[in-house]
Design a binder for these strands. Structure first.
Length: 776
DNA sequence: ATTGAGCGG
């Protein structure tokens, strides 16, 4: 709650601690309302220290409370009777608040009081097949679940693998937080945290607090497309309203003066659109105009030459004039505002006061005021609080990191989804490998040592895998196949069909939850959790697999296999002559690549191993591909048709491997470049390729390539002296550079994303290899 | 690694 005090030399905004000193504030507000303070003097001013006002007598001795005596029944010392610990907490709280306020002033936080909801859990690392209902059932054991939402890609409907669970009670939420972290759901070890999301909170502007939205309100906002939702809400500060009206007035006058027509539409738009939108609208409009201009230029390059300098200058002048007009308008508006302020300050005060009061009510109904409750169950909540603090600080950091990152993250997600969809087209293959996958998973379960697991993965020879699997657990494999084959035959079965059979098992699981161990398997007791997993497995294997077909959501181990199958597949895919498939695969492979970095600790070792392995593999491929000649890349080198075909495929594969190394830096463009360069200049590119192999740092590699390219193209252009060609090359180069830059920027986030994917997918393999879930 | 659609500015 804030009050603006207007003085002859400027405004002062006063924040009121309404919840701390309700009576005092009420007194103050009421006095404001009766215009008690109007025209008061600042009777005492000490530079850099204080300025006192509010005494109608102007002396500092006068004035009286609206209650008869100031402060009424307020107990000033609310720290008495508190233990030292409590005092400390209070202090810490105050400090935190102060920091938050500073951040707010600096502009890092929208509003210091803007806190994420306390009764909402954030659940991530979910299995994509997990649904709202599943989660609700599972989480409802801690208390009534108010709402539960798995966030999905709004285009594809794929699960984004995180969810929000809103509890009716905060306590239930805390319990769930304590008990459900690192628990297995649908074969995935989920992670639970308190929601840090403030997206359900609408910031009503600086100093105006926040508003907590329900779904309907959100929808409304979405429909309105604005930050400020309802039209007739008292959300608008009177000053703003005035400003807007004035705005309109000015424009109206403007319009009448100039008799412009297009303004009219503009104006209507503005009136319909809430607040800030009009500005962006205008900007957009402006942009469009400008772009149109540009288009004109581009469209008629011939005309451009004909156009006189004067023409262009006129254009510019027109643009500038437009800008100027706007500026003038703004100025006028500002002046008007000032004038008005002087005239009608009184009324505003009243409005402010009224609005403030009900504002306060609303806010108090919201989230604040958790302090007392806190004191009641402190013991229980100590851990929780710590966690919260942790995560909130993390959130702050994240926030400070900037919006760009999250944006990129989202983008990546989308890419993921795309690739998923891509993969769906080759469901035939994926099914085959899926079978292997399920087998391998089973084998992992039976061999409770994670070492074994690792050897599988790192050796990652499909033959060994399948062999060991066959020998290890035929039964389970057959069972698994049994489980999912029908579904894959039927194709897309609706989940409703599948759900009934799985329901009882779910309840079974639920009954196990109370022990909490079934959901949180440990190393030492591989049996019980396994049971749970098995049941989960079977529950999911059917309906999960149908979804696998859709989303190509195979666990990681399969991808390893695919890596190794890659050579073969590459060759035969390219025998079809389709390069696209190869490229699709390439993106796939990039996922596979991150794949060895799965389980927590052995991650790095594995990564290194895999790197060396990959190098080896690469070398193998190279040697095999370049059996005839050393200049392996030279697709232009002469050879017979069939051979050429084969060679080409190999070349693609090889290129792919080069790219495989570089994918993270430049993925798609790389492809294009490569193709072009390999077509245009073979020997050079092969040289550069060799260099690439040798150098270990990606960035360096990129630079080398770039330089090389430049060299090669330059030399080429000079040698061939084909001006058109060189132009082309130049253009291409530009493109390349742009893209490589972009990719570099994205590299980090992409890596992260990939890792997350691998983690998710590998969670099934973590079944035994994972330690106890963190408990508090 | 992870926060409520996603994108562009």
């Amino acid at each position: 709650m804030a009050v603006v005090i207007e003085t002859t030399i400027g405004d002062i905004t006063v924040d009121l601690f309404i919840d701390k000193r309700p009576q005092t504030c009420k007194n103050f507000l009421k006095l404001c309302k009766v215009k008690y303070y109007n025209f008061s003097l600042f009777h005492s001013i000490q530079a850099n220290f204080l300025a006192q006002t509010g005494d109608p007598t102007g002396s500092g001795d006068g004035g009286e409370s609206i209650f008869g005596r100031i402060g009424a029944d307020e107990k000033i010392n609310n720290e008495e009777g508190l233990s030292a610990q409590q005092l400390e907490e209070l202090k810490a709280e105050r400090e935190a608040k102060a920091r938050a306020t500073i951040l707010e002033i600096v502009g890092d936080l929208p509003e210091a009081d803007c806190a994420p909801p306390e009764n909402v859990l954030f659940v991530c690392k979910l299995n994509p097949v997990t649904t709202d209902d599943d989660l609700e059932i599972i989480f409802s054991r801690f208390g009534k679940v108010k709402s539960c939402e798995v966030i999905r890609d709004h285009a594809t409907g794929d699960s984004l693998q995180y969810a929000f669970v809103e509890f009716e009670e905060q306590r239930a939420c805390e319990q769930a937080f304590l008990k459900m972290d690192n628990v297995l759901i649908d074969d995935r070890r989920i992670h639970v945290d308190f929601s840090q999301s403030v997206s359900k909170i609408r910031w009503r502007g600086k100093g105006r607090g926040v508003q907590y939205l329900d779904k309907e309100e959100q929808k409304e906002i979405k429909a309105n497309g604005g930050r400020y939702g309802r039209k007739d809400e008292s959300r608008d500060r009177p000053r703003e309203r005035e400003a807007r009206d004035r705005d309109r007035d000015v424009r109206e006058r403007d319009r009448s003066a100039r008799g412009g027509r297009e303004r009219k539409d503009d104006d209507r738009d503005r009136r319909r659109d809430p607040d800030h939108r009009d500005r962006s609208e205008r900007r957009r409009e402006d942009d469009r105009r400008r772009r149109d201009d540009g288009d004109d230029d581009r469209r008629r390059p011939d005309d451009e030459s004909k156009r006189t300098e004067g023409d262009r200058r006129l254009d510019d002048a027109w643009r500038r004039a437009d800008d100027d007009r706007r500026k003038i308008e703004d100025d006028r508006r500002r002046a008007e505002e000032k004038r008005r302020k002087e005239g009608s300050g009184r009324r505003r005060d009243d409005d402010e006061t009224r609005r403030g009061v009900d504002d306060d009510h609303r806010r108090r109904g919201g989230v604040t005021g958790g302090v007392d409750d806190d004191r009641k169950r402190r013991d229980d909540r100590r851990a929780v609080a710590d966690r919260r603090h942790d995560s909130s600080s993390r959130r702050d950091e994240r926030r400070r990191d900037g919006e760009g990152q999250s944006g990129r993250g989202r983008y990546d997600k989308k890419e993921d989804a795309d690739s998923k969809r891509n993969g769906a087209s080759r469901s035939e293959k994926s099914r085959g490998s899926k079978e292997k996958e399920s087998k391998s998973r089973d084998s992992r379960k039976s061999n409770s040592t994670s070492k074994r697991d690792d050897s599988h993965r790192s050796s990652s020879r499909s033959e060994t895998l399948s062999k060991s699997n066959k020998s290890n657990d035929k039964e389970k494999a057959s069972k698994d196949q049994h489980a999912h084959q029908p579904s894959s035959e039927v194709g897309k079965k609706t989940t409703e069909d599948e759900l009934p059979p799985s329901e009882p098992k779910k309840s079974e699981i639920l009954s196990e939850i109370p022990e909490n161990d079934a959901y949180a398997p440990k190393k030492e007791s591989p049996f019980q959790p396994q049971k749970a997993e098995d049941s989960l497995d079977t529950t999911r294997s059917t309906d999960g697999d149908t979804k696998f077909d859709d989303h190509d959501e195979e666990p990681r181990s399969d991808r390893v296999i695919r890596n190794n199958e890659f050579e073969e597949r590459m060759s035969f895919e390219n025998e079809d002559g389709t390069v696209r498939q190869a490229s699709a695969n390439s993106s796939r492979r990039s996922y596979g690549k991150t794949n060895p970095s799965e389980d927590g600790t052995p991650r790095k070792e594995e990564a290194i191993k895999s790197k060396t392995k990959k190098k080896k593999m690469k070398r193998q491929v190279e040697s095999s591909s370049s059996s005839s000649s050393d200049s392996s890349d030279s697709s232009s080198s002469s050879s017979s048709g069939a051979k050429r075909k084969k060679k080409r495929s190999l070349t693609v594969a090889k290129k792919y491997y080069h790219r495989g190394k570089l994918v993270k830096v430049v993925k798609k463009k790389k492809q294009r470049n490569h193709r072009q360069s390999s077509e245009s200049d073979s020997s050079e590119s092969s040289d550069s390729d060799r260099k690439k192999k040798k150098s270990s740092k990606y960035l360096k590699v990129v630079k080398v390539i770039k330089k090389r390219k430049r060299h090669s193209s330059d030399s080429e252009s000079s040698s061939s002296e084909d001006s058109e060609d060189s132009e082309d090359v130049r253009r291409k180069r530009k493109k390349q550079e742009k893209n490589s830059k972009k990719k570099k920027c994205n590299k980090k986030s992409k890596k992260r994303k990939l890792k997350s994917r691998s983690d998710d997918d590998s969670s099934s393999s973590e079944d035994e290899g994972y330690g106890k879930p963190v408990k508090t």
